[in-house]
Design a protein around this nucleic acid. Sequence first.
DNA 1: CAGTATCCTTCCTGATACTG
DNA 2: CAGTATCAGGAAGGATACTG
Lengths: 119, 119
Amino acid sequence: MTAERRGPYFCGIDAAMDVVSGKWKSLILWELDAYGTRRFTELKRGLPGVSEKMLVQHLREMEADGLVHREVYREVPPRVEYSMTEHGVSLNAALAPLGAWGTERIRRIGAEKIVLDAS
Amino acid sequence: MTAERRGPYFCGIDAAMDVVSGKWKSLILWELDAYGTRRFTELKRGLPGVSEKMLVQHLREMEADGLVHREVYREVPPRVEYSMTEHGVSLNAALAPLGAWGTERIRRIGAEKIVLDAS
DNA sequence: CAGTATCCTTCCTGATACTG
DNA sequence: CAGTATCAGGAAGGATACTG
């Protein structure tokens, strides 16, 4: 496993970035915010192109950072449900203005947007 | 030179991250916001540990993204002043809540904070 | 279903030396 | 002063095969 930092940090942005950076993390946050609870395979379908390795790795880091809760149901076949913690919810709220800025930027520069299908 | 993406993006956060990610970019934003205008060497002193290569590279990318304005004074020795554009100012505003969240996180996990000296 | 375990590639970052 | 050029390292991300 990789990606262990947790400081020292230059500033708050630096510390927040440490937790959010990773190609799929903001998308995971978005999915969990939109659906409340999501199974591993559902997340995988919702993040087109993600490998299982990266998905697990990001989820584990976010769990360690207290953003995501992982609930395991001991059944056969196994079921695992991911959801956001309060801490994750607060991060999402803090990210909202940045998301709006980015959406405006997409419009501004006419960048392509990847359409995610609702499942 | 590296780092050319500009889409396609999954969402606003993704697009904003594309512009902000880079080890020193948020610090550069912070410096320019605090001082208004900064020369190359001043930025270099303000970002302890940055190499000239990375500093130039980040500044060029931020200039290309319309966040930073670069003013060259044709003197000897040369003088170049960097400042934020309106677009950069709006990004900084959008980053403020995330910065506050990160500052709270530093306190929460008791991470070390790198002290930047005022010059 | 929900992961592990490897291997491999690419990108990001850093160190150092040199220049208009 | 404000860069450029080159080389080298490490970390992030991806492809594929296998498992409780």
